[in-house]
Computed example of a mutant assay.
Amino acid sequence: MFTTATLSATHSLQYIITAVTPGINSPEYIEVGLLDGEPFVYYDSKIKKMIPKTEWIKNNEDEDCWDAETQTNQATQEIFKANIATAMSRFNQTEGVHTVQAMYGCELHDDGTTTGYRQEGYDGEDFISLDLNTLTWTAANDKAVITKNKWEATGTNAHQWKGYLENTCIEWLQKYVSYSRDTLERKDPPEVTLFQKDSSSPVVCHATGFFPKGVAIFWQKNGEDLRENVELTETLPNQDGTYQKRSILTVSPEDLNKNKYSCVVHHSGLEKDLVLAFQPVNVGAILAVLLLVLVGCAAFLIWRKKKKNGKGCRRQMGSPNEQLQWGLVY
C-alpha cells in the first residue's frame, strides 16, 4: 500500500576522508568506511591505526589486514596534509582552520546496475570530482583547475579510479554484504507506541527496534490519510544496531474526541502495515515508551561469532607511489 525509496535493496560502500589544519582539539586526519551508510572501519591520526567498528568485519579480517590499512592511511595522511597547505597557498590563506575532504565509493542496485564516484572538497565547498563517463576531472573553481590539469596530464589516474570504482569496489561491496548478511539483511519489526503528555499536547507515534532503516510512519483520520499538522522526525540509531523514529500529530482535544486517529507504520519486517488507534492519555504508555528508548540506547546486540577466514583486505589506494599516480596530490 505504501512504498518509499528508502526500502530499496541497493547496497553501498563509501569512504570519507577528512583532513584539517593542526591546532584544534580533534584529529588532523580521519577516514571512515561505511557499508550501507553504517560505519564499519575507522582510522584517525590520534589513535594511528585502522580499527573495526562492527563484529562482522572484525571476524572476517586478520591482523595483517589492519596493519596494511594502517600503513596506507598513515601515508595518505601525509598527502592530505600537503594538500591542505597547497590549497591554502592557492587561496592566499596563511592561517585559520581549513579542511580537505574526499569521498568515494560505489553502489550496487537491486536491478544489477552499478554506480561509482570520487570527489573532493575544500573548506566545505566542492573542489574537484571525477566524471566516469568522460574520464576527466571537473574543477569547481579556478584554483582547482591546476589540479585538474595535473591529474589529466596522462589520464592514468582517471582510468585507475574507473577500474577501482566499477570493479574492485563492487567486488569488495559484495564481499562485505556477504560477511554481514545476517546483520544487514535481517528484518526486525518495529515496536510502536502511541502517547500524549496531556490532553492539550501533541500525539506522538514512536517506533523503535526496527531494522533495516527504511520505515514509513503516517497518520489516518477516520480511515483517511492525514498529511496536515504532522511532524516526522529524523530516523535515529539505537546502540544495538536498530533504529527509532517518531511522528508527531498536533490536534485539538475537541478534534481528538470527535474523530478516530490512527498511526500507520510500514516496514519490511512487518507482514502488513501496523495500524495503532489513539487511546486516551495513558501514563503507563508514556513510561513504556521512555523505557523502550532507554533500552534502545543502552543495549548491545550480541552478534553470532564467525571464525576468521583471512579472506583478504581492502587496499583502496595502494602504496604511496601508487597514490601519486592515482591523483591524490594537488
Rank of each mutant, 00 (worst) to 15 (best):
K258D: 14
D142I: 01
Q196M: 10
E55G: 11
W161K: 13
A216K: 04
A75T: 03
T18C: 13
N321E: 13
T154C: 15
V251A: 03
D273R: 10
T138H: 03
E234Y: 10
K162F: 15
A207G: 04
D255P: 13
E231V: 02
V145L: 01
S180T: 09
T193I: 14
N282S: 09
A285W: 09
A9D: 12
L328D: 04
L132D: 06
Q279T: 07
G241E: 00
K305C: 13
L34R: 11
S200V: 15
R314I: 14
E171C: 14
G327L: 02
Q119I: 07
T54N: 12
Q101F: 11
T72E: 10
S252E: 09
S89L: 03
I51K: 03
W66C: 03
D62K: 08
E125C: 02
T115M: 12
A140H: 03
T138Y: 05
K306G: 09
T4M: 07
P189T: 00
N229W: 08
Q323L: 07
K49N: 08
T21W: 02
D142G: 00
V20H: 02
N282D: 04
P253H: 07
D44M: 11
K258E: 15
F211L: 15
A75K: 11
L294P: 05
C297G: 15
W219K: 00
L301A: 06
Y104A: 09
N167Y: 13
E152H: 03
H267C: 02
Q74M: 10
R304S: 06
Q101M: 10
E322I: 14
G327T: 02
K150S: 01
D123F: 04
F40G: 02
S178C: 08
E191I: 05
R118L: 11
L249K: 01
I51C: 07
Q14G: 04
R246T: 01
Y15F: 12
I79D: 10
G296F: 04
R304C: 11
Q77S: 15
K260D: 05
V251C: 12
L274N: 00
A82M: 12
L7K: 04
V329T: 09
L135G: 06
V329S: 01
A9S: 13
D255I: 15
T115K: 15
F2P: 00
S129R: 07
V20D: 05
S268C: 05
I51V: 11
Y43D: 14
P27F: 02
L290P: 00
D126S: 13
V281H: 11
T10R: 07
A87P: 04
L328Y: 13
E322F: 10
C205H: 01
G214R: 06
M317S: 15
L34F: 13
S262F: 02
P280V: 13
N259A: 11
Q323R: 07
K308D: 05
K143W: 03
I217F: 03
C297Q: 05
M88Y: 10
T168H: 09
W303Q: 12
L7R: 01
P202M: 05
T76S: 13
A298N: 11
W172T: 08
E38I: 14
C65S: 06
S12C: 06
E55W: 05
W326M: 09
A299R: 14
S201P: 08
K162E: 10
C297R: 08
F2L: 06
W66L: 06
L249P: 01
C65T: 08
S45A: 07
Q220G: 00
Q174Y: 12
Y117K: 14
D44H: 11
